[in-house]
């Protein structure tokens, strides 16, 4: 086990955190496990691929467009679909978002075939060295963006008016409604924000590795693990849990072999859930 392995493990964790942030937000605010979150992530990667094929836009030039499209999609999704489901109870939410995930996978397979693809960028293949440690450029970028997003989100939730409105709506929707907060609008904006975060994660994921229509499942599972370990709705917790997950995975792979990458993560997930259902770092801001 050398320093490069550990450092890149942590950086990969940054990518996990980035993918998990949106899921955590929706779980925390809407009390909804969005099983379609992985589809939002992969969808963004496919959108970037399409923009490349249509207009020769590189992944990072496409990113702003993808973010806007994802946010709009998230907003409409909440408005037209999720609001109605949430009123019917938690099962409806799980089943409905699962239905969306199935539809998403079908749509990707129909539009892009089921072959593995990836986003090509010079960032994916470059690296730099600090004191003998080689850092993957794309992972450094992902990690930096994850920290920036988590920081911005934390600041926004705690220090801005919009943030306190959001927290009020999350804590007690009916009281918030009575106090003149448009809860439905707040919820829709939350899903839009979560989709935008998912889009950032998706494009970076697509650049750093390959993906296929069914890649959403493993992304969703790791994101759920990160969210639960970090504490639902706890933005800093999610970030720290993501980084920790990457580190733990790198260590277990070096010590026990590649087969144990999943094992350690999921055992950790189970143990934390049993011992501390609120996550290692508590419920957090929401």
């Amino acid at each position: 086990m050398n320093a490069t392995t550990l450092v890149n493990g942590v950086l990969e964790g940054g990518l996990y955190a980035l993918v998990a942030l949106g899921l955590s937000l929706v779980f925390g605010v809407l009390r909804l496990i969005n099983l379609a979150h992985g589809v939002l992530v992969i969808g963004a990667a496919y959108a970037a691929l399409e923009l490349f094929e249509l207009f020769r836009l590189g992944p990072f030039a496409a990113l702003p467009i993808v973010i806007v499209v994802a946010a709009m999609f998230g907003f409409l999704l909440q408005r037209l679909m999720l609001t109605n489901l949430l009123l019917k109870g938690p099962e409806a939410g799980i089943v409905g978002t699962f239905g969306l995930a199935v539809l998403g996978e079908a749509a990707f397979a129909a539009a892009f075939t089921s072959n593995g693809v990836s986003l090509q960028s010079s960032l994916a293949t470059s690296s730099f060295k600090i004191g003998g440690v080689t850092l993957e450029m794309v992972l450094v970028t992902a990690c930096a963006i994850a920290i920036a997003c988590a920081g911005g989100l934390q600041f926004g939730l705690k220090r801005t008016r919009a943030g306190s409105v959001l927290r009020a709506a999350a804590k007690d929707p009916s009281t918030a409604e009575l106090m003149g907060i448009n809860v439905r609008l707040v919820f829709a904006l939350t899903v839009a924000l979560a989709a935008a975060l998912a889009a950032v994660g998706g494009v970076l994921y697509g650049v750093s590795t390959g993906f296929e229509p069914t890649s959403d499942t493993s992304l969703l599972l790791i994101a759920v693990a990160v969210v639960v370990v970090g504490g639902v709705g706890n933005v800093t917790g999610t970030l720290v849990a993501g980084l920790a997950m990457g580190l733990v995975q790198a260590i277990s792979v070096s010590v026990f072999g590649g087969g144990y990458a999943d094992f350690t993560v999921y055992v950790l997930f189970f143990v934390v859930l049993i011992a501390r259902p609120k996550g290692l770092f508590g419920q957090g801001a929401l």
Partner: peptide, 16 residues
């Protein structure tokens, strides 16, 4: 692919 569309779509229609 069509059967996936059906399954997903049917789920959404049913819960909705």
């Amino acid at each position: 692919t069509l059967s996936l569309f059906f399954e997903g779509g049917l789920l959404l229609v049913i819960v909705r």
